[in-house]
Structure formats: structure tokens, C-alpha cells
Simulated assay, not measured.
Amino acid sequence: MASVKIASAKKTSKTKKSMSEEKKDMISAYLYIAPFFIIFAVIGLYPALFSTFLAFQKWNGLAPMEFVGLNNFRVVLMDPLFWKSLYNTIIIGLMGTAPQLIIGIILAFLLNLSFLRFKNFFRVTIFMPYITSMVAVALIFSVLFSNHESSLANYTLGLLGFDPVNWGASEWGTKIAISIMVFWRWVGYNTIIYLAGIQSISNDLYEAATIDGANKFQQLIHITMPLLKPFIILTVFFSTVGSLQLFAEPTVFLGASAFTRDEAMTVVMYLYRDAFKLQSFGTASATAIILLVIIIIFSAINTLVTSGFGRKKKGAY
């Protein structure tokens, strides 16, 4: 009987010891991942919650806050400049984003061709704009799209028989210049993503298509595009979010006059102007929430559209 009690006691002590070791391992694991959650709470979660709180307050950053309910949302939604900024954001986003997704797939397909020489050089070159400093980008495009007749853009238009364009002041001239800047900066990023997707496709499919007599264009349409669907959905989602948050490109292109003109005023620029130019943090926070809702709606629509890409209809073979 005594031996049974001793054995039971030893078993209990071993169980407690193993439980304590499990707790130590669990605490150690939480300590390892704690820095991420702490940093996220400080620079991510808290600003988001505080901005949501500010959306219902009237505050200039110094005076006491005053609760105004939904008035900030009403002020923003009734402001014609907000709708103008939303219009600019969508137009510039479409002109700068849609072409880069299509051309990105074509470039990725060309960079993956077996007979292409100096592949690494071309891949690095096409990715360079993404890592280029925005200051350098601003200098380059301010020269390319200068209002002077001898600028590269106006000189090219002259060769084609068109009149020079005042890129920095005209409505569509500004939009086109910024869209080209967005395209130039991000097309390489999407190309590399598509290239990674193409390289995950088995070469046997292309070899079989070649034996069946399919040319390169047919292989691109019927093999590459359908199998790139997950990557297309990813890039469309990121591009949609990025285009609706457009800020750096129009700001550096227009310079000091960026927040005093409405030709290229985007929603984020409108938000920034309210917060840091007009010291109206309540309406700026309300604009941020409205922008979040718009991003969710557009992202959902684009995801649904791209999810149906390449899907066979019922009864199709």
C-alpha cells in the first residue's frame, strides 16, 4: 500500500513538473512574439482607435475636444473638394494602375523566355524604379514633363504633330504626368511578382502547347494567364489599395502648390490638408474612415471580378 502511495506521489510530482515546464515554454513563446504585438499596438492599433474617436470630435490639436457626433462626416461629404479629390484618385488610379498590370504580365512572360540573354540584367533594371528615391523620381519627372517646349514630353508631342502641353497646370496634363509616374514606379514591382508566378508553372505545359502548334501569344492567353490567377488577384488587391492611398507622387510632382490646387488633389492629400494645414483633425479622421469604407468596397469588387477570371462556364469544355 505504501509503495502504491509513493508511486502515485512520484507520478503526481512528474505531472506537475511537466506542466510547469509547459507553462515556461508557453511564457517563453509569448515573450518572443511580444515585441511585434507591442509595436503593433503602439504604432498601429492605438492610432487607428484614436482616429476613430477623433472622427466624432472637433479638435485643432490644442484646444479641448468637443463632441460633434456625425457632423464631421456631414462636412466632408458635403464638401465639393472631397468629391473632386475622390474623382482625381479614381481617374489617376485607373490610368496608372490598369496598364501596369497588363504590361507587367507581358514583361514577365518575355523575361521568362528561354532564349532571352542577360535575364538578370533586365530583371534588375525593370525593378530599379521601385527602389528609387522619391526625390530622384521628382527631379526626373519635373524635367521630363517640364512646361517648356524643349522638354522631352513636349518635344515628343511636337514630333507627332501635337501642341506643347502645360503639364504642371492643365487638368489632364497633370493627371497624365502623375499616372505615368505611378506606372513607371510600380510596373517593375508587379512584373517581378508575375515572373515568380510564371516560374512556378511547369514547363511541360508550354512544351505540350508548342507540340500542339500553339504560338507564344496563345500560350500566354491560354496557359499563363489562367494559372497566374492567384497572383493577379494579389496584385489587383494591392494596386487598388495603393491607388486609393495615392499621396507621394502628386505631392512631389506639384511641389509647394500641391495642396492649393485641385487638379490632382487625392483623398489622402485632402485628409493631410485638413489635419496638418487647417488643423481640423476631426474632419481628417472622418475622411480616413470614409476612405477605409471606399477601399473595402473597391477591393471587394475587384476581388470578385478577378476571382471569376478564367472560370469556365457550365457546359463548356
Rank of each mutant, 00 (worst) to 15 (best):
153 A>Q: 09
257 S>Y: 04
149 E>T: 03
171 E>W: 02
270 Y>R: 02
229 K>A: 06
5 K>G: 00
27 I>W: 14
246 L>M: 14
268 V>F: 08
233 I>F: 04
89 T>P: 01
249 E>Y: 04
117 R>T: 02
159 L>G: 02
277 K>G: 00
123 R>L: 11
166 N>S: 04
185 R>Q: 14
82 F>G: 08
286 A>Y: 04
143 V>Y: 07
195 L>G: 04
260 T>V: 11
3 S>R: 15
294 I>M: 08
35 P>D: 11
123 R>K: 15
114 S>C: 00
283 T>P: 13
81 L>M: 13
22 E>N: 14
118 F>V: 06
195 L>Q: 07
266 T>N: 02
1 M>I: 10
146 S>M: 04
317 Y>M: 11
89 T>R: 00
289 I>H: 02
202 S>V: 01
87 Y>K: 12
236 V>S: 14
156 T>Q: 09
255 G>D: 10
150 S>C: 02
209 A>M: 05
246 L>C: 01
3 S>D: 14
21 E>D: 11
155 Y>P: 08
216 K>E: 08
256 A>S: 01
53 F>G: 07
61 G>Y: 10
173 G>E: 05
178 I>M: 03
133 S>L: 13
38 I>H: 11
156 T>P: 06
193 I>D: 10
107 L>S: 11
198 I>H: 06
6 I>G: 00
89 T>W: 01
184 W>F: 10
95 M>P: 01
138 A>L: 00
177 A>K: 05
240 T>W: 09
172 W>C: 06
316 A>W: 05
14 K>S: 13
86 L>E: 08
287 T>D: 09
199 Q>L: 02
268 V>P: 06
222 H>Y: 13
170 S>T: 15
159 L>E: 03
89 T>Q: 04
22 E>K: 15
291 L>I: 03
165 V>A: 07
236 V>R: 03
153 A>D: 13
110 L>Y: 03
85 S>R: 04
192 I>D: 03
97 T>Q: 13
23 K>E: 15
53 F>P: 05
218 Q>D: 08
297 I>G: 04
144 L>T: 11
72 N>C: 06
178 I>W: 03
215 N>F: 03
249 E>I: 11
19 M>R: 14
7 A>H: 08
258 A>G: 03
240 T>D: 09
135 V>L: 13
98 A>G: 00
234 L>H: 01
239 S>F: 05
190 N>P: 00
